[in-house]
Nucleic acid binder design. Structure first.
Length: 422
RNA sequence: GUGGACGUAGCUCAGCUUGGUAGAGCCCUGGAUUGUGGUUCCAGUUGUCGCGGGUUCAAGUCCCGUCGUCCACCCCA
């Protein structure tokens, strides 16, 4: 084989594609019911958007973006995430002018140049929502509630929700000083990479798995929030509790994108292996300004579809066995092709899924094809023993077949389909 | 970017330790059934052993390189 798919990408087809379609449809219906409307933004954006929004020093920007120059030399990047593009579209189209909270959902492919691993791909798919225009803790609770519902509507058992507040720019810079001061005392107990992190990004030390002994003794961000951030976090927890949402406080939860402020959360799944976050999100109150717009508080989350599909609970038999093809035409000779196509079109107009076998294979193969496709009925066109203008209508389940005049085929087929479905 | 395992038929894999004419199941093809699928029986084809180089009389098997897959680190959804 000369060509193989690019590293870290997947072909999705057959029953798997059908399953993806069912899940995407179910989630779109659910998010619509929550008041979120779809937004479709370009697959690529100007590189500068992601550099500014996600953060110059982040892993995503420094080593994971698919960036290229177009024919006029403009630097473009395949979107590594979709919060920045949604914000860009929101600002560019003046969607904040109506006031109130704008609610969007999106679904589609994202691209990050990472080493592929279980649950991690170079092209992967996310479904996410963004609520722009409210800074209050109630919308944070709504977002978390909606994210939990995503898994509930798909039949997942209750999943673990991790919650933290990473503060605003003010409390974060103060905490960074406190943390760095504390780290000096523990320097000997840190691994090599964490010693580097002390200088570059001390907050990241909380992600390290080797230095857990030290981590437990370090100060945590939630003890060093400013008054407003602290009030917000406490209020959010109050709302979550009163609407019956269970969560685990995780002061070590850090988001990898620079735009996050205050609320940060993740939904975890126990069987996913190392990449166990099904969904992650948080507040990004500074992003609109960073993108050159007015100050607009906002919050959102995004969920990885590959990871979701990996642990999707078994779908109902009704969903899995839904017939893909209702009627297959077996065409015995070249002269019957046009007639078959014409009859098939009439059946399709009545809402049936109809496939005409144009392979020119033997009738044996064509009926086997009909059988493999799960068709309820086969229409055999071109049998020499039948009168002109007549086809054979065969019930696949029982094998019975009878001659039917072309003009009566639609009515007879619909009648058989009704009987079959009972 | 780092580490480990793996790469053989369309698919799932055995064969490699100890070098000697490439295998199984499924699928596919033909027949039993001379235009009629599913069950059964019989027969048959599965092939650049990832790619390149090396050692050897001889390499799927040993060695080196390379590409890819999976898993972990890292990062994140």
């Amino acid at each position: 084989m000369k060509f193989a798919r690019p590293r870290g990408t997947n072909d999705i087809f057959g029953e798997q594609a059908a399953s993806w379609r069912r899940v995407e449809n179910a989630l779109a219906v659910y998010l619509r019911s929550c008041g979120y409307r779809e937004i479709r933004t370009p697959i690529f954006e100007s590189t500068e958007l992601f550099v500014r929004a996600v953060g110059e020093a982040t892993d995503i920007v420094t080593k994971e973006m698919y960036t290229f120059a177009d024919r006029k030399g403009r630097s473009l990047t395949l979107r590594p995430e979709n919060t920045a593009p949604v914000m860009r579209a929101y600002l560019e189209n003046g969607l904040y002018r109506g006031g109130g909270v704008a609610r969007f959902y999106y679904i589609g492919p994202m691209f990050r140049y990472d080493r592929p691993q279980a649950g991690r791909f170079r092209q992967f798919h996310q479904i996410g929502i963004e609520a722009l225009g409210s800074g209050g803790p109630a919308i944070d609770a709504e977002i978390i509630d909606v994210s939990i519902g995503l898994y509930r509507v798909l039949g997942f058992p209750p999943l673990e929700v991790r919650l933290n507040s990473v503060g605003c720019a003010v409390c974060r810079s103060k905490f960074r000083e406190v943390l760095t001061a504390s780290l000096i005392g523990f320097k000997g107990g840190l691994c090599d990479s964490c010693r580097e992190r002390m200088e570059t990004n001390p907050l990241r030390i909380f992600d390290c798995k080797e230095c857990s002994a030290v981590k437990e003794k370090l100060p945590v961000i939630t003890d060093h929030l400013c008054g407003e951030c602290s009030d917000h976090f406490i209020a959010l927890q109050g709302i979550l509790t009163s609407i019956g949402i269970r969560y685990v406080l995780d002061p070590l939860l850090v988001r990898g994108l620079d735009y996050y402020t205050r609320t940060a959360f993740e939904i975890l799944h126990p069987f996913l292996g190392a990449q166990n976050a099904l969904c992650g999100g948080g507040r990004y109150d500074g992003l609109a300004e960073d993108c050159g717009g007015p100050r607009i508080p906002a919050i959102g989350f995004s969920a990885g579809l590959e990871r979701l599909m990996e642990v999707l609970p078994g779908e109902s038999d009704a969903a899995r066995h839904e017939r893909e093809t209702d009627v297959c035409f077996a065409v015995l000779d070249e002269a019957s092709v046009a007639r078959s196509l014409s009859l098939a079109r009439e059946l399709r107009d009545r809402g049936l899924s109809v496939v005409v076998d144009l392979s020119g294979r033997t009738i044996k193969k064509q009926l086997k094809g009909a059988s493999d496709a799960g068709a309820a009925l086969a229409v055999i066109v071109g049998l020499a023993e039948l009168e002109p203008g007549t086809v054979a209508l065969k019930k696949m389940k029982t094998g019975e077949q009878r001659p039917v005049r072309d003009v009566a085929l639609i009515a007879e087929t619909l009648k058989e389909m009704e009987l079959t479905d009972e």
